[in-house]
Design a protein around this nucleic acid. Structure first.
Lengths: 234, 234
DNA sequence: ACAAAAGTGTTAGATCTACACCCATGT
DNA sequence: ACATGGGTGTAGATCTAACACTTTTGT
């Protein structure tokens, strides 16, 4: 099939398509997960892949990523960040396509199940991922690495939790991200010393009989600290 | 002008061009600098910009970046890393072009002056940058930020120095990157304690009468340490 | 002889790490 | 009453940050 590529001034011959792919991380209070999709179009139809789409001419790459994420998860205004662009000549077996990968962090609890069915999506544990098409496995590996690095210095972990969460939940999340166990006393001390959590007087008793106090992330306080030049680290 | 965009299977209408732009950092033993070019084509001809090029159909995006870098600096096998992709609809005033930005680190001393003249290039101090076309200013700001972050945990600084360098030179480099003064004794202690530098018995007397010993970066040792799980930080 | 940059140790304070028991509550 | 996870403090080790003088040598 032939397509028309129109530029205003540049006299360039180029046959490259531009797509986005989204690595969607989720956390369900127990494990860190990845949302994968059974591919609905050729080539590689029926295999597991990240969700992606071609960019429209009148939409920015960021907008393209936002849109595909909204369509498949029903979620808006969620954490979404560009990861890396994948541009090998034969990365897509059906044509010359470069893909700008994004990763997103959501709370599994706030995610619409309806979308899962409609798009043939499935949450996979990070240590039980199936084979993925093209270079999507590489994208996922890069995203996991990036998440580990980023979580240390920016409070992005909170995007994976519901608005109210407990300290033990937060600890399990960080243990999942870093893939190592943390000392409960030291973790609590460190996270509370940052003074970016607001304690409520409610308890979540789903995890224990005693129940754990619910906290919420105080973004205003955090931003103020960053503005003062805080060298944040968890 | 109309162009043909051919894909094998995908039935997509898309009129987007794909380019790369390179942010080239250099260090001359005194200051951190940026290599900028007087643009030779419309639009915005004659204004300062990063060097860039359109990707060819049969070349990966990484290869495209490598090629433009080689053509303009004469340098091969130098540090080159993808920064970010810029994809706003109207970022280029002459058409829909997305650009994958790369940044590169070189030693100004090892750089061919010949290329500078041929391509109308100029080294600018980081604090005296001219206005740049399109979103190139944003690219540069992002690259500086990335360089700061990355230099802390990976030994990329050495790419900005010639093979043999002195500790005071290295310190000035890190001071330029972090934009803050460092204590000479503490810096020397820390960098030497990493045990990744090999001392030679030669001195560089260009900086002082006494002269400073020349060192060289020991990549083998560094890689071995990383393999052991070293949590590197400068 | 002197100017100018290179090179060298110590100490106080801050931070990190390891570790064990009591508390609250549902069953 | 007991099982289960929640919540708390301390001490030793390590790391960080601040600080001043001597060495070398070209002019």
């Amino acid at each position: 099939m032939k397509l028309i590529n129109n530029t205003d001034i540049y006299t360039v011959q180029q046959n490259i398509l531009v797509a986005v792919d989204c690595i969607i991380f989720g956390f369900d209070s127990k494990k860190l997960k990845l949302l994968l999709f059974k591919r609905k179009v050729a080539p590689s139809k029926g295999l597991w892949s990240l969700i992606g789409a071609f960019i429209k001419d009148d939409q920015s790459v960021d907008e393209g990523a936002k849109q595909i994420l909204f369509e498949t998860t029903g979620l808006k205004d969620i954490y979404l960040e560009q990861l890396k662009t994948y541009g090998n000549v034969h990365r897509d077996i059906a044509g010359r396509v470069i893909s700008i990968a994004y990763y997103s962090l959501i709370s599994v609890r706030e995610f619409e199940l309806e979308s899962v069915e409609k798009y043939d999506a499935h949450w996979f544990d990070l240590d039980e991922l199936p084979n993925l098409i093209f270079d999507h496995g590489e994208m996922v590996a890069d995203a996991i690495k990036q998440l580990k690095t980023k979580a240390k210095h920016q409070p992005i972990g909170f995007n994976l939790l519901p608005k109210y969460f407990t300290i033990p939940e937060l600890q399990i999340l960080y243990e999942s991200i870093y893939q190592q166990e943390l000392d409960a006393r030291n973790f609590r001390k460190k996270i509370l010393s940052l003074d970016i959590l607001t304690k409520t007087n409610k308890k979540d008793k789903s995890g224990s009989k005693k129940g754990a106090f619910l906290y919420t992330f105080n973004k205003e306080k955090f931003d103020a600290l960053i503005a003062e030049g805080l060298n944040f680290e968890i």
